[in-house]
Design a protein around this nucleic acid. Structure first.
Length: 572
RNA sequence: UGCCCGAUGGUGUAACGGUAGCACAGCAGACUCUGAAUCUGUUUGUCAUGGUUCAAAUCCAUGUCGGGCAACCA
């Protein structure tokens, strides 16, 4: 079984998530309001998806999955100047990675592996605009952006508001034909310039943009605004529940007005809003993430320190862990900051169940067992995963000269130090109990080697193997260990709220967010695979990085193990 | 300033007029050939003031605080 039973997001027996939106949907299902529940996930392809999008994906696809519905993946691509095909492709990859084996049966696509595009509806949206004009509900306005702004602020009618239908039709047609330069005029809804809600004060529907579009090419020089395109795209796709974040709450009356004004024959979609995700020690704005990427403060959109889905994936987090996280944080209308510890817990819980245990020494110090025969190699049996009885065992070579972790030895041990110290004993995992007899130093006083003796009967399974020693440490045979590059990642920011009180997030970047070292690993790690997850015992979880080459493994530290000793040591 | 939304332990969330619960974090202990995992115990909470009611976290009013919107972005 590769699916751990701790995966609440994946476990059919686990209680289904419940929140105010799902309650509404359940109510609609109970009263059979719609033939089928239909949601959508509509990212704009102007950047990479991040963990906040993951929350939305889990919500929208989760609802489709739980209520036997469909969730469309739709590119909300109405602004050609900011969007790019690179983002379309990354979004597709991230979504399919996150929902694979979970909700992929509920993914609505235009065609095989083809997502929906709002830009595919430009013809229809244009026709809807014509309809609005004919109903006297839209007009072409020639005011400048500044004027428009001023008039809307002061609830004044545009001087062009009462143009005739014929004139509006003519002007709008010529806008489409490319007769006007960018900014010359716009199409506006004719609603109520004095409405308390700004979005009802004759909002813009179309603007002129002589720009190549990544999906429609040079076909258009006018593009619909979000508010006009989004509700109509939802309608055209038969969406029933259009779920978005809180900042669109004030747009809802406009969403409803447009659909109602068109006298559309089919059932109309409705918009529901929830709070976007904020995570401590993290920034979530696409614009700011892009800043980190373009200024090379990180290595790319998939830098494992970033909260992007691709970064999280590269770091070694599984989709199950991300879904479990989304399940645990819930859905509300309250704008809070989720403790990143909740994410970390979800990751550890998932990895604990699935990771292969391995012995690797990150910061080595040499140990020589003076009473162990030179040239002898023993193969010792080690358990692959104590959480999984079917995980089996492997062999690890043991010899007279070993590497142990520098942190596992203290010449002057602090209180409650259970590890190796002069004259003290410690167990080498799966091997012998050893005793430190001598500390060898170089001229500068640095420790270069520990000379120890082994209790040769204390091997796991041996005569004195039941002897109790307080500490057990990991190790690697010096003659057999393989070198591996290990990338130790830490939080990107030193402050829980990087932008608190308007501070520039780049002033609180963690200078130690990445440390690259060479580790001494047990030889089986030579055969590490990209899909596997590893726990270097007593240290952390790791996954193979895509930069690895045959014979040159590179491991990313996904997350450390909890470390009670680090806390204890800090108290001193 | 106008309009909209929100407020439950440190953090996130549940309780749908009837015993304030869960998770994470914290603390203490047990166990341990991973100071992990697991197990046990435990600290901490309904923004304020009125009102309705036998009974209010829940309904109403006012206030306070927080967030959002006021782009030819989404």
């Amino acid at each position: 079984m590769s699916t751990p039973n701790t995966d609440t997001a994946n476990n059919a027996a686990a209680p289904a998530p419940s929140d105010f939106i799902r309650e509404i949907v359940a109510q609609h299902v109970a009263e059979a309001r719609y033939p089928q529940i239909h949601t959508r996930f509509p990212p704009e392809p102007n950047g990479y998806l991040h963990i906040g999008h993951a929350k939305s994906i889990c919500l929208n696809f989760g609802i489709a999955r739980e209520f036997g519905g469909v969730c469309n993946l739709r590119m909300d691509d109405t602004n050609p100047t900011k969007e790019d095909i690179e983002y379309v492709e990354s979004i597709q990859a991230d979504v399919s990675w996150l929902i694979a084996g979970w909700a992929d049966k509920h993914l609505g696509l235009k065609a095989a592996s083809e997502p929906f595009f709002a830009s595919d509806y430009f013809d229809q949206i244009y026709e809807f605009a014509i309809m609005l004009i004919k109903k006297g509900k839209a007009f072409v306005c020639d005011m400048t952006p500044d004027q428009t702004d001023d008039y809307r602020r002061n609830a004044k009618e545009s001087p062009f508001r009462n143009r005739s239908v014929e004139e509006n039709l003519d002007l709008f047609t010529r806008m489409k034909a490319g007769e006007f330069p960018d900014g010359k005029c716009v199409l506006r809804a004719r609603i109520d310039v004095a409405a308390p809600n700004i979005w009802l004060r004759d909002p813009l529907l179309y603007r002129i943009r002589h720009a190549e579009h990544h999906h429609t090419g040079a076909k258009w020089c006018i593009y619909p605004m979000y508010d006009f395109a989004h509700c109509l795209s939802d309608y055209l796709e038969g969406i029933t529940h259009s779920i978005c974040t809180l900042e669109f709450e004030v747009h809802r009356p406009l969403y409803d007005w447009i659909l109602a004004s068109l006298d559309l024959p089919r059932t109309l979609p409705h918009q529901y809003e929830f709070a976007r995700l904020s995570l401590s020690y993290t920034i979530m704005s696409k614009r700011k993430l892009m800043e980190l990427v373009t200024e090379k403060l990180v290595t790319g959109w998939d830098d494992p320190r970033l909260p992007t889905i691709s970064g999280i994936r590269r770091r070694g987090v599984t989709p199950e862990a991300l879904r479990a996280f989304a399940y645990h944080i819930g859905i509300t209308k309250y704008n809070g900051v989720t403790d990143v510890a909740v994410l970390e817990h979800a990751i550890r819980e998932d990895l604990n169940a699935r990771a292969q245990r391995r012995l690797a020494v990150l910061r080595p110090i040499k140990v020589v067992l003076t009473n162990y025969p030179e040239g002898q190699t023993e193969q010792l049996s080690a358990i692959n995963n104590p959480q999984d009885e079917a995980g089996g065992t492997r062999q690890i070579p043991f010899t007279r000269e070993l590497w142990i972790e520098r942190e596992d030895f203290a010449e002057v041990p602090p209180p409650k130090f259970f590890r190796l110290k002069p004259g003290g004993e410690v167990r080498l995992k799966y091997a012998y109990i050893i005793k430190c007899e001598e500390v060898v130093k170089d001229a500068a006083g640095n420790i270069t080697e520990l000379r120890c003796t082994a209790d040769l009967d204390s091997k796991t399974g041996g005569a004195t193997s039941a002897r109790k020693v307080k500490g057990t440490i990991h190790w690697a045979s010096a003659a057999h260990a393989i070198d591996a590059e290990v990338r130790l990642y830490d939080r990107l920011f030193t402050e829980a709220e990087p932008e608190k009180d308007g501070r520039d997030f780049k002033t609180v970047l963690n200078p130690h967010s990445l440390e690259v070292i060479t580790a001494k690993c047990e030889p089986s790690l030579r055969d590490a695979t990209p899909d596997a997850r590893y726990q270097f015992e007593r240290l952390a979880y790791f996954a193979l990085d895509k930069d690895s080459a045959p014979g040159k493994p590179i491991f990313n530290r996904t997350i450390t193990l909890k470390d009670a000793w680090a806390k204890e040591a800090q108290k001193a």
